[in-house]
Design a protein around this nucleic acid. Sequence first.
DNA 1: CTGAAAGCGCTTACAG
DNA 2: CTGAAAGCGCTTACAG
Lengths: 341, 341
Amino acid sequence: MKPTVHDIAAHAGVSLATVDRVLNGRAGVRAPTRERVEAAISALGFVRDVAAANLAKGRIYRFTFILPANDNSFMIGLRRQVEEAIQWAGRERVSIRIVDVPAFDDAALAAALEQAGEDAIDGIAFVAVDSGAVRDVVERLAERGTILVTLVSDLAGSRRHHFAGIDNIAAGQTAATLMCRFLGARSGKILPIAGSLQVQDHRDRLKGFSDHVARSYPCRALLPVVEGADNPERVAALLREALRHREDIAGIYSFGAGNRGLLTVLEEGRGQEAPVVIVHELTEISRQGLLGGRIDAVLNQDAGHEVRSALRVLKAGADGAALLAAQERIRIDIFLKENLP
Amino acid sequence: MKPTVHDIAAHAGVSLATVDRVLNGRAGVRAPTRERVEAAISALGFVRDVAAANLAKGRIYRFTFILPANDNSFMIGLRRQVEEAIQWAGRERVSIRIVDVPAFDDAALAAALEQAGEDAIDGIAFVAVDSGAVRDVVERLAERGTILVTLVSDLAGSRRHHFAGIDNIAAGQTAATLMCRFLGARSGKILPIAGSLQVQDHRDRLKGFSDHVARSYPCRALLPVVEGADNPERVAALLREALRHREDIAGIYSFGAGNRGLLTVLEEGRGQEAPVVIVHELTEISRQGLLGGRIDAVLNQDAGHEVRSALRVLKAGADGAALLAAQERIRIDIFLKENLP
DNA sequence: CTGAAAGCGCTTACAG
DNA sequence: CTGAAAGCGCTTACAG
C-alpha cells in the first residue's frame, strides 16, 4: 500500500499536525523534528494525495479568463471552449469566471486585469494587447504571485508565466512554404491580407511569411499588404479592388479574420485561373472554402487545446507544480481538404 | 455552497446510507424513498464529488496496455508515453500495467487480452491485430464489461469501445494531395513504400493514397508498392533497386517505418533532381530528413495524444461517464520543416 | 428496507 | 514548538 501521513507520523514519531507542517513547509517546527519527518518521507517514498488534501482544505481554484468581445468566429469559438471548460470545472473544484473587454483596447484590458487581481484569485488567462499600461499591471500581479497566462496573443518579455498559443512567425513561414510549393512554376504575385498590423500575431505572421518567401523563393514577389480589419465587407472590397488593378495575383495569404468576404469575391470567379489561397483558423467558413476547393490550405490553432492547456498551466502554477512543456506546446495545424477533422 | 450528501439526506429526511444507495443505483430502497431522494437531488442540483467518492471507496482504476515489442521509433515513443503516463497515474489513483507481445502476432495478442481479462481489471488498451481469435476475446471481454480501447491500429466492427488513432485512409489521401501538389507539373512516377500490407493501417494508407491520386490527379502514375517490413536495411535495398531500374521516380511515399534506410539512399544522391518525399511519423530520423531538405513532409499521429486520450476514455468508461468526442479525435498532423514542434 | 458510526488521506483550529 | 480531535464529501460494513 502507498504510505500515508499516518505512516510518516508513526515512522518519525510525531503527530499528524507536525507531518502536515513539514509537508506544507509551514514554520514552527524545530530543525531536528523537521529532519526526522523528511527522513521518513523519503524513506517511505511518500507522495501526497492531492485530491484528499484539496478535499480537506476545501480548496477551490479561482481563475478568470479575460476575453475580447470580438465577434469573429475564432473568438466566438474560443469563448465557447471556455464555457465548456466551466462545465467541467464545476466538478473539479475549479471556478472560472469570464470577463469581457472591448477588442484591441489596451486600457480596458489593463483595467480588467487590475480588477481581476483585486478579487484575490489564483490566476488569470488573457488575450494580450501590448501596451505600457498592460505591462505595468502584469508586472504588479506577477509580483503578488498571481499566475498569468497569455492566450492566443502573447506579451513577450513580460512576467506572464506562460503563453498558450502558437508561434506566429513559424506559422507565416509555414504558409510561405505551402504557398510557394503549391504555386510551383506558375507565375504571378502573392497578395497578403492582414486583419490589423496593430496586433502582434498578425505582424508576426506577415514577417514570417515575407522573410521566408524572400529567403527561400526569391523570384516570387509579394504585393503590398492590405488590412481588412477582420471585417468581411472590408476584406471583400479590398480584394475586389486588388483583383481589378492587377491581373497577376496568383496567390492570396489571408492571416486575419473576415474570410467570408474573401470567399464571396473568390466565388464571383473571373474566368482566370483561380489563385492559391491560404487562410488562418478553421471556422465554418474556411471549412466550406476548403471543401469547395476555393481555399487550398488552412493554418489553425486549436482553441480547445489552448483553453485546456491554459487551465492546466494555471492549476499547476497555483499548486506550484511542474508541467510537461512538450504537452503544453500548441501546434500549428495544417488542414487540407483531406485531413479536415 | 454546493450541496453535499448531507444536504440531500436532510432534504429527503433519510440517512446518508440511503442517499448513497440511490446515488449509486444500489438495490434495497423502497420506491417512495428513492423518489424522495431523487427529488432532493434535482431540487438542490446536487453533483457528486468524484474525488471524495474515490477517496472513500479506495477506488483504484486498473488498466493494462498491451504493446507490441516492436523496435521502431514510433512504437518506442508510444511505449515511452505510456511510461510517462504511469508516473502521472500514481498520483491519480490509476494503476497502469504494460504487457508486451510480439509484433503482428495475433495469437499472442489474443492470449495477452485473455490474460489481462483474467486479472479483473477495468480496461485494456491494445494495438489491434485483426484475426478471429482476437475478435473472439474482444467480444467476450466486452460482454463482461471490460472497457476496450484500440490504440494506433483499430479493430473495426468489433465491440471495442473506442479507437485512439487516426483515420489512415484520410492520411493516405492527405499524402496524395501534398505529393501531387508539390510535384506540380513535374513529370515522373510515385513509388509507394509500405511496411507490411498485412497490417490494416498500411493497407488503408495505400488505398487512400492510390484512390485519391487516381481520382484527382489521373495523369500521375504510381509504381507497384514495395514492402520494407519496417526495416531500414530492407527499405534501403528496395529503394536502391527501384532507383536503378527506373529513372522516372519523382515522388516517394513511405508509409511504414524504416525511414533511416530511405534517408541513407537519398543521401547517396545521384545527380538527378531529388524526388518529393513524404513519410509517416515524426521521429528523430524523419525530423532530420525534414530539416535537411530530403523529406518534404511528414504525416504524424501524436503518440502522446493517443495514450492520454486512451486513458481518458478508459477512465470515463470505467466511471460510466460520457466523453467529448471532439476532444478525443486524433489529428492527422502535417509537418513541414517550418512548423516542426 | 433503513440508519448510526467509522473511515478514506489530509488539514485545521485549538490547547498546551 | 507539538499534539489530540474534528472535519472535508462520500462510502461501507454492521445492526436492526
